[in-house]
Write a protein that binds this DNA or RNA. Structure first.
Lengths: 194, 194
DNA sequence: ACATTAAACTAACAAGCGTTAGTTTTGTTG
DNA sequence: CAACAAAACTAACGCTTGTTAGTTTAATGT
């Protein structure tokens, strides 16, 4: 029981270090020092450095996948779904900021089954996202621009949010979501007639 | 004379490897093998692994800074400047795709003066970008949304382009620029009256 | 209180790291 | 073709890495 608590502490600390320096630049001794113990002691709680990375990444990847599925299976208008996905993505980002650094920058250091699993989940997430955009174009609510570019434009912003948000704490989460949806969906340029 | 050529080859190869695995995961032996020589031979052309990273990053950072300055000092309407900056950013991305991976993910492994220089140039670039957006709001051409969010939204997309574009070669550069400007500035949502 | 388990420790390993020294091969130029 | 420089090589260095073995301390349950 308690064993899991200590393990979670290690994972959390590791995520913070991975975010700052990247997976490969963080040594087990760095991690141990941050926890005020010796490196060997870590192995009472975890199996390997590799395992830390994969547990961190796969948990969040699963949340993303589940959340997206839940939104996607409902029968709402595409535009509504799009807003939901953006807000959901922001929610996860705010509660897993550190881990998202690893997910974005260190996923390629996963191995074997874990790497495959991650890649599959990411693909699925992107596919669902794209399908929603396509649907929006069909429904006439979304511009007739290149759908790949639109998908990339939104997704890249959402994916980088973990880097930017911690520096701007004065922006409250609710306001952020509202304004982000506006910016991403309605663009920067002011039109004469809404 | 010729010495420089071989060095450039090394830098280019390194950039490719850094992009795939990250600076710390690439060893001098990896780099040497990719060049079909032994690791020790690399040191006939370069001083250190660190130097490779800083030469790669600082060169591109300088191009960004110069280009931005050149656009910013002209007396055009903000919206026009914004388009220019986006297109310029895309141009650089297409000619330095590999290096941009290091610039985005491995800049924190720079040291001393080089790290300072990089951070200063990045700050300057962002400040100029933000000023243009502010000007656009004043001029009435840009939405009254949160300017930090708008800046982040555009910049994050541009910064991640190096990851996405190589996978979509069927999109020609000119079309990309056009569509990207549209997507970023005019958003996804279709309005009733332009 | 005592026995058991959890979690820290010290010490060390084999492997891999960036880098240097010294030597040989390759290529160029007079 | 001889002389010199450029660029490859072999061998090794000191250090750091992730991890294991074995031991001691702290916490927990009966």
């Amino acid at each position: 029981m308690k064993k899991k608590i200590r393990k979670k502490e290690i994972l959390k600390t590791a995520a913070g270090l991975f975010k700052e320096k990247g997976y490969n630049a963080v040594t087990m001794r760095d991690l141990a020092k941050e926890m005020d113990i010796k490196a060997a002691s870590l192995y009472n709680h975890i199996d390997s450095k590799q395992q830390i990375l994969s547990e961190l990444i796969l948990e969040v990847a699963q949340r993303f996948t589940e959340g997206m599925d839940k939104i996607d299976c409902k029968e709402n208008p595409a535009l509504e779904k799009l807003e939901e996905v953006i807000e959901f993505h922001i929610d996860i980002t705010l509660s897993y900021t550190d881990v998202l650094a690893s997910l974005n920058n260190d996923w390629m250091h996963l191995e074997n089954q874990e790497l495959e699993d991650y890649l599959m989940m990411r693909q699925r997430y992107e596919d669902n996202f794209k399908t929603i955009i396509k649907k929006g174009i069909e429904e006439g609510s979304i511009q007739h621009y290149n759908e790949e570019i639109m998908l990339f434009s939104i997704l890249s912003t959402l994916r980088t949010l973990y880097l930017w948000y911690p520096k701007k704490e004065k922006i409250k989460a609710e306001i952020l979501k509202e304004q982000m949806v506006d910016t991403l969906l309605y663009g920067l340029v002011r039109r004469n007639l809404t």
